[in-house]
Simulated scan of single mutants.
Amino acid sequence: MSSVNFVCISIRKHPISEKLFEDFLRTMPDTIYHIKGYIRFTGNPDTLHFQYAYSILSFLLLLH
């Protein structure tokens, strides 16, 4: 039987560089199947919901 691990982290509370975030995701090992959360990028006032699954990244704009 395989084991499943769950980790919850907060990277930062302030906007982050989109390139820095994408670089972070590229470092994920193949054993990471799903990452999701909320993020704001530098220079963009919107909060986005992101999902990263099987090396595919998608964003959804959150409406206020």
Results as ranks from 00 to 15, higher is better:
8 C>V: 15
3 S>D: 01
36 K>P: 00
24 F>L: 15
25 L>Y: 07
8 C>G: 06
53 A>M: 12
6 F>E: 00
54 Y>E: 08
30 D>P: 09
64 H>M: 09
29 P>L: 00
25 L>P: 03
22 E>Y: 14
38 Y>R: 15
19 K>M: 00
21 F>P: 05
14 H>G: 04
9 I>V: 12
17 S>M: 09
32 I>M: 05
18 E>A: 10
36 K>L: 00
37 G>L: 01
61 L>W: 12
48 L>F: 15
49 H>C: 06
25 L>C: 08
11 I>K: 13
22 E>G: 02
33 Y>Q: 02
26 R>K: 15
23 D>G: 03
63 L>E: 15
33 Y>S: 02
45 P>G: 01
31 T>D: 13
47 T>N: 09
60 L>M: 07
12 R>P: 01
42 T>H: 09
42 T>G: 03
38 Y>S: 02
62 L>E: 10
19 K>Y: 04
58 S>D: 11
49 H>S: 06
23 D>C: 06
51 Q>G: 07
40 R>S: 06
12 R>E: 10
37 G>S: 01
61 L>M: 08
23 D>V: 05
59 F>S: 02
2 S>A: 10
43 G>T: 02
5 N>L: 06
7 V>Y: 07
6 F>A: 00
29 P>K: 10
62 L>C: 13
26 R>H: 08
34 H>P: 00
63 L>I: 10
47 T>R: 07
18 E>Y: 12
25 L>A: 04
32 I>T: 12
45 P>H: 04
3 S>C: 01
40 R>T: 01
35 I>E: 11
24 F>A: 13
56 I>H: 14
55 S>L: 00
10 S>L: 09
35 I>K: 13
62 L>N: 08
24 F>S: 11
15 P>E: 03
50 F>S: 05
1 M>C: 00
5 N>F: 06
61 L>H: 14
9 I>N: 10
41 F>Y: 14
24 F>M: 14
12 R>S: 11
2 S>K: 14
40 R>G: 02
29 P>M: 00
44 N>M: 05
52 Y>Q: 02
64 H>E: 11
20 L>P: 05
15 P>K: 09
19 K>I: 03
47 T>Q: 06
31 T>C: 08
14 H>L: 11
25 L>F: 09
50 F>A: 06
52 Y>F: 10
48 L>G: 06
11 I>V: 13
4 V>C: 02
17 S>K: 15
27 T>Q: 15
2 S>Q: 11
3 S>M: 03
62 L>V: 14
58 S>N: 09
60 L>F: 07
11 I>L: 14
14 H>V: 12
29 P>C: 01
8 C>M: 11
54 Y>T: 02
15 P>Q: 04
30 D>Q: 11
57 L>R: 09
57 L>M: 02
25 L>S: 03
4 V>K: 13
25 L>M: 07
7 V>A: 10
